[in-house]
Design a protein around this nucleic acid. Sequence first.
DNA 1: CTGTTAGCGCCTTCAT
DNA 2: ATGAAGGCGCTAACAG
Lengths: 337, 337
Amino acid sequence: MITIYDIAEKAGVSAMTVSRVINNTGRISEATRKRVRKVMEELHYIPNSMARSLVLQKTHILSLLITDITNPFYTTIARGAEDAAKRSGFRLLFGNSDEDYAKEKDYVDMILSTRVDGVLFAPTGDHSLEHLQQLQKHNIPFVVLDREVPGIEADVVLGDSKEGARKLVEHLIGIGHRRIALINGSQDVSTARLRHLGYREAHTLNGLPIDDSLIIHVNYRDFHDESALEALLQHPSPPTAIFAANNMLAVGVIKSLRQRGLQVPQDISVVCFDDFVHAEAINPFLTVAAQPAYQFGSLGMQLLIERIESEPARENRKLILPSELLIRASSQALVRA
Amino acid sequence: MITIYDIAEKAGVSAMTVSRVINNTGRISEATRKRVRKVMEELHYIPNSMARSLVLQKTHILSLLITDITNPFYTTIARGAEDAAKRSGFRLLFGNSDEDYAKEKDYVDMILSTRVDGVLFAPTGDHSLEHLQQLQKHNIPFVVLDREVPGIEADVVLGDSKEGARKLVEHLIGIGHRRIALINGSQDVSTARLRHLGYREAHTLNGLPIDDSLIIHVNYRDFHDESALEALLQHPSPPTAIFAANNMLAVGVIKSLRQRGLQVPQDISVVCFDDFVHAEAINPFLTVAAQPAYQFGSLGMQLLIERIESEPARENRKLILPSELLIRASSQALVRA
DNA sequence: CTGTTAGCGCCTTCAT
DNA sequence: ATGAAGGCGCTAACAG
């Protein structure tokens, strides 16, 4: 491996001079600077970032931890985060917890031993508290993404889950639906709690009763699980519309409905949170509360970088990004029997 | 920051002993081992992997470079790669080149300075040769993924682009189509060249003429570009079926067709490479040549890890993973006019 | 079974 | 404008 000493020797200077050339620090005569640069190129020298990290106590690596790499919402976040990190010259250590607490723990250990400069952290749920506290204990700056964790004070970037849910359900109510099912994520996750609240609020505001037997909690990644839908369809007084708490669940629902020969929206309406590119090719073209996923990632990363680079500890910031109700073909006015 | 010296002092041993406890090397009495471990826990000690990397000349970091993080094919690869890396205790430095040569170059520089132990590399195209050669020059092991690069000898994991394309087109021919368009990626990319070849082969084998005006080259990520489709629809003798070279292009095609009021498959059939979860919810349920994306990632990562860990340089290996023709609703027998 | 010494590649500090 | 010494946190090699 080529080191600054190899360069120094060949250029007839000291290693320190080479270091100065690399980092553009100190005063170096133009002549030596050129000579050193030339040798560096000849020898294909690449600085060793590990050695540099060790002495600088900065890795220039940020970590992004998401909960589901197969979900377009999160991959779009990843794209935003990656672009932002790259713009500021940070490398990205990537992690996918698969909504799994144990995997999340492994990643936190990795993050800790890697001494990353900061973490953009989408928690699997409230129990992620422990992991976040671990980061705090080791003074690793982080920004919480997408889901709030009670007990943690930190920068956070969120969607407006309650509002979005309310808008979706009010849309359904507005077009005549009265029996609306909710297929939701685990109540251990803040977004699921808030979407549930929004769902209830929409009912209450419109003077409608809430039938708890129409509310089902699964895991955000359990989109293959048909038992939830099955239960709803077997219901003595089945729903005329389904609100799936995220896009993956919605796709699962539509698939299952199709397998049972049920048409959306003719037989039943379906709406969900989170848009995705392929939604536009899906039939029925889904009605969604679209969240600005890319911004989740890029703004989150920006907050993180600012926090790292701003010396005097800033106050915590909370960004709530609005969702947009996109009414499309999967929800249809209820034809009264 | 807590170091082994802090541990050593508090436990009344030397730093070396602590190091031995951490790494389970050498002979340590059970008593001291326990004492050391206890102190480590008390002080919440986490080994500094940078320092370790520096002395061991191994980072235990692998890099995965993909070309499109918004494409489910690649995110599924990422998932497979990540799982495999994790199983072997490697960290994953993640990169997304966006099918962009310049971004790819940036990532190669990052990879080089990070001194990763190896790279799983999905090249943007033939011109990636330069980047791969750079890795070779610096003795960084890599496995080429998804796309072959002429001039590079290395382990490689590929799909059977030609075969898959041939099967798709023969399926279309088999149900009566004679004018089949190809919306393909750039000819600078091996998969696009092979899919083109498969397309031609299917025609030749079936004694059909090839109309080059039905073959259009775009970029795999240009799924928003409607000009290709526009040209095909304006054709004096328009196609009755479209073979989109990947899933993203297919989704773009279906969207555009819908906007023009054309029905798939009634008005025109569409088939493509690469399946994706959401395909099953799409209407029309796409006919695809499904590739085992997860295996691309996990097998690729396995090859990489084996190459890193096997001392005597093994021969290069070439894995070709078959695709599966899934005939679904988007392709329909041609009704002769 | 445990400790000492030296050095991984780089940069900070202090000299010159 | 440049160099020498020392140290970041860790471990290999050798000593005892």
